[in-house]
């Protein structure tokens, strides 16, 4: 009893607000629903340790592709350059490895930051819609990756020296997950505990109001894109290890969509203003579960593109529903 009353002062409000946040996150209920459903349908295979590990790995990939861009979505813009950073960053690591050695993996966050910075500055200066801008940049990087492959005449851009990153140091916890942890922690910290996060959220919910409140909107927009790029770059290290020490060399619709879907599914609407990386994590988990369940049903994987589309559609629907609820209240 004594312990409880002492804790009450600090722990309880945090616990309370976390609980309230969970209740209001549709993705949270979706996750519970899916987990219950799959446990009931395929109890043996769904709860097996290999499958749980697979879910964890899938979650890492989806969340690494979505937490960074969440910052940009939150301020009312869009950033889909994550695929470009993942692909071409990998190509850079491959190119630089002979010169830099093991350090070259750190090219990823630096490259990500640089691309974020460029995205931000070009978007703010030229006012090109961010979606078009970042998708164009992704297309350019996809092309450049192919060019590098053609010049060097290789099929994949693998760096076998990093293979040790794959495996599991701690049993059942894939290393990719451990690599992802700092990114998740950083993103939640940036969003919820810093001035930066508050300002980005302000820009997303009311840009004119943010300007009138004396926020340097342009500067923070550039910062938002930079944070997005940096976190994606850092997350790409986990993705790099996930694919067995290499980056993808072809542009895949699934990869492109899963980032956005996780954001929206988690409850950050594309108009910005509400939500955040903590929500995106739920979205990422929900997305992973949906596809894990589909694998378990044994449906032809070619149909998956159909379900990707449907999921994105559904995600937007759920998110807008939630928004309406707020407006009516």
């Amino acid at each position: 009893m004594k312990n409880e009353s002492r804790k009450k002062s600090t722990a309880l409000p945090i616990l309370f607000s976390t609980a309230r946040m969970l209740m209001r996150t549709p993705a949270f209920w979706l996750i519970i629903g899916l987990a219950v459903l799959f446990t009931a349908l395929y109890s043996g295979s769904f709860l097996s340790s290999t499958n749980l590990e697979n879910i964890l790995k899938g979650f890492v990939v989806t969340s690494m592709l979505s937490v960074g861009p969440t910052f940009v979505v939150l301020m009312g813009s869009l950033d889909v350059s994550y695929i470009g950073i993942w692909m071409f960053g990998g190509a850079l690591v491959w190119l630089l490895f002979p010169y830099l050695g093991m350090v070259s993996i750190f090219v990823y966050p630096i490259f990500g930051l640089a691309i974020g910075l460029v995205n931000g500055i070009v978007h703010v200066k030229t006012k090109i819609p961010s979606f078009i801008l970042t998708i164009a940049i992704t297309a350019v990087f996809a092309y450049l990756t192919t060019v590098i492959r053609n010049i060097y005449g290789v099929l994949t851009l693998a760096v076998p020296e990093y293979r040790f990153l794959a495996g599991s140091v701690i049993p059942y916890l894939p290393n990719t997950f451990l690599l992802a942890l700092p990114v998740l922690a950083l993103s939640i910290f940036f969003m919820n505990f810093t001035k930066l996060g508050t300002y980005l959220c302000a820009i997303g919910s009311n840009e004119e109001g943010a300007e009138l409140a004396g926020i340097n909107v342009k500067k923070y927009k550039v910062l938002g894109f930079s944070v997005s790029g940096f976190l994606t770059g850092l997350g790409s290290i986990a993705l790099f290890s996930y694919l067995g020490a290499r980056a993808p060399v072809t542009l895949d619709l699934n990869e492109m969509v899963r980032g956005l879907a996780a954001i929206v599914l988690g409850g950050t609407p594309l108009v910005g203003g509400v939500g955040g990386p903590h929500r995106t994590l739920f979205g990422a988990l929900a997305y992973t579960l949906i596809f894990n369940g589909l694998f378990l049903t044994g449906i032809d994987p070619n149909q998956f593109k159909l379900y990707i589309g449907l999921t994105l559609w559904g995600a937007v629907l759920i998110a807008s529903r939630r928004l309406k609820g707020v407006l009516i209240a």
Binding site: S205, N206, G209, L212, A213, G273, V326
Partner: peptide, 13 residues
């Protein structure tokens, strides 16, 4: 400061 609270306030905050 203007009276247009719709512009100035963040209503869902």
């Amino acid at each position: 400061f203007s009276g247009e609270t719709g512009k100035e306030l963040f209503l869902y905050w």
